[in-house]
């Protein structure tokens, strides 16, 4: 597992690590019992501050996805891969069929993306999107506005 930090994305480096770890957990790249790269390894390959990695791992730990084992490293506790979303699941097959029809109907890639996004917005309103926004804005707890 190797992280890729995009310095221009505007997303904080530790969040990129969190997101990429989750993505790997969803896709089954990381499975329970796997060891995450150490802060030193991430620092070496991505040239990021070691505390960034540690912060990301603490976040993942809080969500119950990973656990630190002192002296050994940080290990995956549970996977985010769902059998319903697997490569041979009925849901995926249905979506693939829908995409084929959309393509036959002459929709471009952008049209499909927009269509999917808008339905996603509609059906998942108030859950995922709100959470993602909160994440992107950062934790306001450390703010110093007390007067």
């Amino acid at each position: 597992m190797e992280f890729r930090i995009d310095r221009r994305s505007g997303v904080a480096a530790y969040q990129q690590i969190v997101q990429q770890t989750k993505q790997a957990l969803r896709l089954g790249v990381l499975l329970p019992g796997d060891r995450l790269p150490t802060a030193k390894e991430v620092s070496q390959t991505c040239a990021v501050n070691p505390n960034t990695t540690l912060k990301a791992y603490r976040e993942l730990e809080r969500e119950g996805l990973v656990e630190p084992r002192p002296g050994l490293g940080t290990f995956v506790r549970r996977s985010l891969a769902r059998p319903q979303a697997g490569a041979d699941s009925p849901l995926r097959t249905e979506l693939a069929g829908w995409m084929d029809r959309a393509r036959e109907a002459g929709l471009e890639r952008e049209d499909v993306t927009a269509l999917v996004a808008s339905v996603l917005e509609e059906r998942y309103a108030g859950s995922t999107v709100a959470a993602a926004n909160a994440e992107a804005l950062g934790t306001p707890g450390a703010r110093s506005t007390g007067e």
Binding site: K40, Q44, T45, A47, N49, P50
Partner: peptide
């Protein structure tokens, strides 16, 4: 630069 910064961070981490 990227490599050396990585080395620097790794040493600092260790």
């Amino acid at each position: 630069r990227h490599e050396l910064m990585g080395t620097l961070m790794a040493e600092a981490a260790e």
